[in-house]
Design a protein around this nucleic acid. Sequence first.
DNA 1: TGATCATATGCAACTTAGTTGCATTTGTCA
DNA 2: TGACAAATGCAACTAAGTTGCATATGATCA
Lengths: 159, 159
Amino acid sequence: MRASAVVKNLKDKGFRITPIRKQIIEILSEDRGPLTSLDILTIIHKTGKKVNESTHDHAIGVSSCIRFARCNKTTVYRQIAFLLEQEILEEINLGEGKNRYDLVENKAHHHHLTCNNCGVIKDLPLEDNDFLQSIEKNTNFRIQKHSLELFGLCLGCQK
Amino acid sequence: MRASAVVKNLKDKGFRITPIRKQIIEILSEDRGPLTSLDILTIIHKTGKKVNESTHDHAIGVSSCIRFARCNKTTVYRQIAFLLEQEILEEINLGEGKNRYDLVENKAHHHHLTCNNCGVIKDLPLEDNDFLQSIEKNTNFRIQKHSLELFGLCLGCQK
DNA sequence: TGATCATATGCAACTTAGTTGCATTTGTCA
DNA sequence: TGACAAATGCAACTAAGTTGCATATGATCA
Ligand SMILES: [Mn+2]
Ligand SMILES: [Mn+2]
Ligand SMILES: [Zn+2]
Ligand SMILES: [Zn+2]
C-alpha cells in the first residue's frame, strides 16, 4: 500500500508517527482527488465515529478512534505544513479561496482538469519540460515552479 | 488613453460612471501589474489625500477627493465584481490567499512570471491554442478557462 | 516496564479576505 | 430641478488559516 511506504519512510527519517499523521496520509492516499483541510478534518471525524459505533475489533483501535473524534483543525493545518515540508504533499489552488492537497509520492508531476458543472477533478499528466525551457530562453527567467489548472466540462456534463 | 475608452464603453452601455468606478479603471490601466483589492483601496485613499493637500485645482475635483478618502473596501469589492461581469477585469490567483486583478481590455490573453525573490510580476504573452486543443482531444474535456502561473527568479535576482 | 523529553495536540483567541443587510447618497435623464 | 434606480458606507458576519500556551503522548533508554 502507498500509505504505509510513506509512513515507513518518515519513521526511518526519525519523525514520530502519531495516529492523526498516519490517518491523514492514509486519507490522501485513497485518491479521492485533492482535498481541502476541512475535507480532511471531516473524514477524520467520521472515521472516529464509524469505528466507535462498530462493536467489532478494528485495525484502528479504540484510543485512536477517540482521538480522531476530537481532532482539531489546528492539528490538521500543522500536519499539512509538516507534510508539505517533507514534500509528501503538493498544495493546489483552484481559485476557490482555499487550498487543496494532493499526495506527491511516486506520482509524476501533473495538472488538473476541473469540471465547472459537476466539480470532478481529473489528473492530467503532461510532459511540459520543452515548453518550460523555451519560456526560460525567451524571458530570461529561471523557472522554479509552475501551476497549470484547466477548467471546463467533463464528457458527462457536455450533455 | 486606455482608461477613458473603457469608461466611454461603459457609458454607452448605459452604466453609471461614478468617481470611484472611474478611478479604479484608471488605477488598473496604469499597468502596475495585477493588484489586490487592498492595493486598489490604498491607492484610492492616497489619491484622495494627495489631491486634498495640493492647493492647485486638479482634474479630479474636490468632491471626488472627499469620496476617495472615505472609500470603503465593500465598494471596491463590489466594483471588482461589476468589472469582472463586464469582462473588463480578469481575476488572477497566485496562491497568496487573495486575488489579484488585471485589466483585460485589448491586451491579449496572457500569463504571468512571478519572481520568488523580489516579487515582480511580468506578463507572459503565450499562444497556447494548439496546446489546449490537443488536451481537449486527449481527455474529452471541453476546456473553457485555464490558468498558467510561473514562479522563479527574474534576471536581476539570479545573482 | 517505566521515567524522560521533545514533539504533537486541543483549545481559545486572533488575523485577514471577502460577503451581506440596510439605511443613505448620488448619477442620470426627463 | 425632481424622481428613481444604482452606488455607497458602515457594521456585523463568515470562512480560511495562524498563534500562544497548557497538556498529552510517541520514541528512547535505563
Ligand atoms: Mn492530482
Ligand atoms: Mn498581466
Ligand atoms: Zn462534470
Ligand atoms: Zn526578482
